[in-house]
Design a protein around this nucleic acid. Structure first.
Lengths: 212, 212
DNA sequence: GGACACTGTTGACTATCCGTCAATAGCTAT
DNA sequence: ATAGCTATTGACGGATAGTCAACAGTGTCC
């Protein structure tokens, strides 16, 4: 009886293993990211929400920025994983499929995506590096589509593909706010934009992926 | 003699008019923007540099964010002014000319541009609003090119044009770091990207501006 | 040319939040 | 039980945003 009472108020005053505690604290931060920008992450409020002291956060993450870094890394990884290209599909269908899942993810986690894309820009250099690394990986995913078809993108096209990623992030943030386009319309728009950019920056590469 | 000694150490302990003081403090902030991101703007260091007390900054701008807002607004206005489209040119040459001056401005003020574009993202909502307003104006400049030729851009194209602005900012930041492209190559890349995006999102509108 | 009013300017104070560290308290094995 | 290990914390120090009553240039009026 006494035990059940102890359990009812949800894991009160438990002494967790370091891994569990880290995971719990990071999860709370990721959840907070959906509501507030990264910069508004308040250590005091967060510790209170977790039911632990502020000192514990510093014990595990060293600093506020170290904590933010883990939160951003975790949220970013979950997005990268949710939008991982399906290697069983041919390049063009794979692009469409990846875009569709990306749009779905953003619609489902609009706040998180927004914080992830716009938040860390003015933050710590290390945090920016984490996001930049994720963007680099996303760009390489697109580059790989061309390479797989035997077309090595030139510097000119690579800059264009990196720019298209910024285009995409912008369009997704806009779409997450104003609900003016359906998912399919948004996927089409993004894919058409990539098509147009590739076509004008390196026609040969565009042809192997899009046919024109 | 005594007077000249007083003047030698450059306007020491002068009591300025509010307008002069505001202008001086904002100018210092804009200059600092070229070196550090917006978030690193330290009121104490800045007041020391200006030779006044911190309290004076709060007197004039109310808060740190109020001050940052003015700094960003001023820096942004100077960029908007430097890249103002020339109404005497026909739409397509006007686009090229504007892009050329934009690239020139960014090359000349790489640090400021970088801080302006990436800095305020995670800052205060009002500061973001200032930057967003400038972006809206930039987008409208592009929209106007099409309208002037009788082609009212659809929602689909408008989102594309807004996205192209993000594309442009990304490419400019990249180019400001890696000096791999000449100014002309960068202008061509940006214009080609716009062409490709317009062509695929709304062919009719693309034709009136670009011919194809 | 001296006193007065106006206002640009400041020093001293408070509040908030990041970060540190020695001390405490819960878990496990014998 | 108890002893040792370690997850956890309360209390402290430091930096910086923001406030406010008091101070000090500057012009004006007689």
């Amino acid at each position: 009886m006494a035990a059940s009472v102890d359990e009812t108020p949800a894991v009160r005053r438990a002494r967790l293993s370091p891994d569990e505690r880290r995971a719990q604290l990071i999860a709370l931060g990721v959840a907070a990211l959906a509501e507030h920008p990264l910069g508004d992450l308040n250590i005091e409020a967060l510790a209170a929400e977790a039911g632990v002291s502020r000192a514990l956060l510093f014990h595990y993450f060293g600093s506020r920025q170290g904590y933010q870094r883990e939160v951003v890394k975790t949220a970013g990884d979950s997005m990268l994983q949710a939008t991982e290209p399906d290697p069983d599909l041919a390049p063009l269908p794979r692009l469409t499929d990846t875009l569709r899942r990306t749009v779905g993810f953003v619609r489902a986690h609009a706040g998180t995506f927004s914080s992830l894309v716009r938040g860390p820009a003015s933050g710590d250099a290390e945090i920016r590096e984490v996001v930049e690394q994720a963007r680099l990986l996303q760009t390489e995913r697109v580059v790989a589509l061309f390479q797989e078809l035997g077309a090595e993108p030139s510097l000119r096209l690579r800059i264009g593909l990196r720019g298209w990623l910024a285009f995409t992030e912008q369009a997704l943030v806009d779409a997450a706010i104003g609900e003016q386009l359906t998912d399919d319309e948004l996927v089409d728009l993004l894919q058409d934009a990539l098509h147009g950019i590739a076509e004008r920056l390196e026609p040969a590469a565009s042809r192997v992926l899009f046919g024109t």
